[in-house]
Simulated scan of single mutants.
Amino acid sequence: MLLTSSQISVAISSTVVTIFTFLLFLSGYVLQQQTVRSIQAVIHPKILPPAPTINPVFAKHFGRPPGHGFYEKYLASNRPKGGWAKVAYVQLVRQHIEVCGTITAFAQLEKEESMAQRIIMYPREWDAQPQDGAKLAPHVETSRRLLREAAKHYKVMLQPIEPNVQRTRSKITPEELYPLTNLLALHYYNRVLYLKPAGLILDPTPLDLLFTLPMDSPILGLSAPTSTSEHPPPSILLLQPSKSTYKELSSLLPEGAYPDTEILNLIHVESAPREKEFHTRLLAETSALDAENVAEFNATEFLEMTGYVHIEDPGVEGPEFDVPRPDFVRAMPSGKQARKAWESVYERYRDARRDVCALDLAPVDRPVDEGGGTGMAEELK
């Protein structure tokens, strides 16, 4: 029997309706099942196996050169007395030009995940508001900004301090106003570590090690041999703060004498050890790179296996300043590898100053006559 055209149309329409009805039912069913599984997951969450325990010391130094194995193993099984919450890196900044270098050092500690606390002591007068609606001086405003960023981003505790002496003389040095004895006032901590500015932390691991080692004296200074001094002053101070130590040290100082040199003369100073077996060094001086054994010195190894480099060279105001190129070249070591390491240290310091502090090198404006002004470099201090 032949179907008419109208019957064929009805049959096609019925088939289309049936197909779309089935697809609509199928999509609804799938959506319903997904909703049921989501509700079940909330009511009966899947229990995941516990994450494997990772030693933080080994984790943060994964991929380090082989020479760090000694420090890794030692720190994995040795903690400071009272734990890492009772030891701290502390910097005492007395001049505005020192602030950025301190911040970059603590930024490196944060990057390398050093577990010790971090403290910056600075003059309380920097927090004072200007009188009569005057604006803050640009260098004061910059220091305030950097200190706030250090507290926010690098877990730094800020400690404003009062001057130890009154400004009774026309010229009084920052060292007299804010002597290193202030470090002993941090009684909460069992041990604090002070790094002489300006410098560059290349690897905090050997520095962290100092928090765990025994001390024969409550104040220990560490120095590195330099090419300019047979007995250089310490670039690292390791202290056990206490009221009794502070009182004893203060009683030994001549009345009215507060400069660092007077205090450091009373401190037991040792040369920073170098573990040749592990090819590591705790402390280095840029001024001593020219005295290195040229045949053995390797710039790459120096930069990878050194804890702290103190940057101070004759004829160079400091790594913070844009020193004239001729003076910079004259201060360079003569050895090719030593010069490579020397230039890299200055370059890294400059890059950190730009990246962390958003600052260029400070201009050097030297006096041109005997009665000349102090220039921009002095103002920044």
Rank of each mutant, 00 (worst) to 15 (best):
L239H: 01
L26R: 09
V10C: 07
S250F: 09
S5T: 11
N293A: 02
L213M: 13
V36C: 06
I39V: 11
T18P: 02
A105S: 15
G375M: 00
P273D: 08
K81R: 13
T228R: 08
P225F: 00
P174F: 06
Q95G: 09
S114Y: 07
I172D: 09
A198Q: 13
R64G: 14
L252S: 13
L253D: 05
H231E: 11
L222M: 04
E343K: 13
Q129M: 15
D322A: 13
L282E: 00
L23H: 06
L283R: 04
F106A: 02
L380W: 12
L282K: 00
E277M: 15
E343L: 09
A377S: 10
K111S: 10
P326A: 08
T173F: 12
L380F: 11
M121P: 05
D360N: 07
L283F: 03
E347M: 14
A134F: 08
H268M: 10
T21R: 12
I103D: 05
Q129Y: 11
L3N: 08
R64D: 14
F58P: 03
A362G: 08
L23T: 06
P174V: 02
E378P: 10
T374D: 13
R94L: 01
L202K: 02
Y188S: 12
T104K: 07
M332L: 14
A88C: 02
E262M: 08
K196S: 13
K73V: 14
T4Y: 04
N265K: 13
P138G: 09
S27N: 09
S5M: 11
R79S: 15
S77W: 05
E255H: 14
T104N: 06
P49I: 03
D369L: 00
P179D: 06
L207N: 01
T306C: 02
P363I: 00
V10A: 11
L193Y: 07
Y246R: 15
S334Q: 15
S114L: 03
T102H: 08
R124E: 15
Y194S: 09
Y71I: 03
R353N: 12
S170N: 13
Y194Q: 09
P232V: 02
S271Y: 15
A105Q: 11
W126C: 10
S287L: 01
V30A: 05
I103E: 01
G307K: 02
V192Y: 01
P65C: 09
L253N: 04
L303A: 03
A295I: 06
H61P: 00
D290I: 06
R167G: 14
T4P: 10
A331Q: 03
F20H: 07
A224M: 07
